[in-house]
Design a protein around this nucleic acid. Structure first.
Ligand SMILES: [Mn+2]
Ligand SMILES: [Mn+2]
Ligand SMILES: [Zn+2]
Ligand SMILES: [Zn+2]
Lengths: 140, 140
DNA sequence: TAGTAGACGCAACTTTGTTGCAATAAGCCC
DNA sequence: GGGCTTATTGCAACAAAGTTGCGTCTACTA
């Protein structure tokens, strides 16, 4: 189960040509095993028993995984980044949902945020970040 | 000019029935004088010569102004809140633009973010936060 | 299996914001 | 104007999330 994700993570990381380290493998495996976007802190928790990883190292691993396009970060109004593995063509512009009750964050893959939003004259569009807030199925 | 905004701020605050204090008046006057959403830090800078206000007091004043609906806060991926006076019917759900070059944030009043976004079954919509990113007229 | 570039761990730091509490001052009544 | 009451203020200390510098370790390569 978990080792499945570890093998998958290892293969994905090897494909980048960069070093395959325990930190990178474990962090990506945790994210692959998760259906939603989770925080640095939550990732740390899920690592506890298997591998004790320094917080700073985890921050750097997450940054590296982002740069390589293997995961993406989600901003939130609680000033905490959340991370999610880039499964399939998941990529590109998509919206996110955040539960105002349990703070859970999920990706809304069906919701394309890359529309051509109307801007003032002279402004140039780059990307849009759309966060829908409400109650998740468990909290509703 | 500036004292115009001060008088305006004083009147608005007096209308709430709560105490009219220098901190509240100055902070709101600064925001009324601004065409965009600015940070706690930027507000502090604009206060410098007139009135030295403690940072904590400014945080509390901004919180109070928000609660009273006289200003609104804008979240951003740089983990810094920005504040904007609620001019006219400006209120309610609207989108924001952030320049990726100079970090300037403006309100997109014409863009209503309160649409009924499609969510997974069992989820309940509350509000949407839409931030369009790109280059402003000066940076483009 | 040795050499090396890149990762890691640790300590210290930064930024943004919050909390507790004693001192102060706005509004109110006279 | 002068006291009274209570909300507001200033200060110090704290907290969470993330960053930086640097010496040590290790994954890969040859
Ligand atoms: Mn996502
Ligand atoms: Mn706004
Ligand atoms: Zn929930
Ligand atoms: Zn700009």
């Amino acid at each position: 189960m978990i080792s499945d994700f570890q093998e998958q993570a290892k293969a994905i990381i090897r494909r980048t040509g960069d070093r395959v380290t325990p930190g990178r493998v474990q962090a990506l495996a945790v994210l692959l095993a998760e259906q939603r976007a989770i925080t640095h802190h939550e990732i740390e928790e899920r690592l506890l028993d298997k591998l004790q990883l320094d917080r700073v190292t985890l921050y750097r691993v997450l940054e590296w995984l982002s740069e390589k396009g293997l995961i993406h970060k989600v901003a939130s109004d609680d000033r905490v980044w959340r991370f999610r593995a880039n499964v399939d063509v998941h990529a590109h512009q998509h919206a996110h949902f955040k539960c105002t009750c349990c703070t859970k964050v999920i990706c809304l893959d069906g919701l394309n945020a890359a529309r051509d939003w109307p801007l003032p004259a002279g402004y140039r569009f780059q990307e849009a970040e759309l966060t829908v807030k409400g109650l998740c199925a468990e909290c509703a």
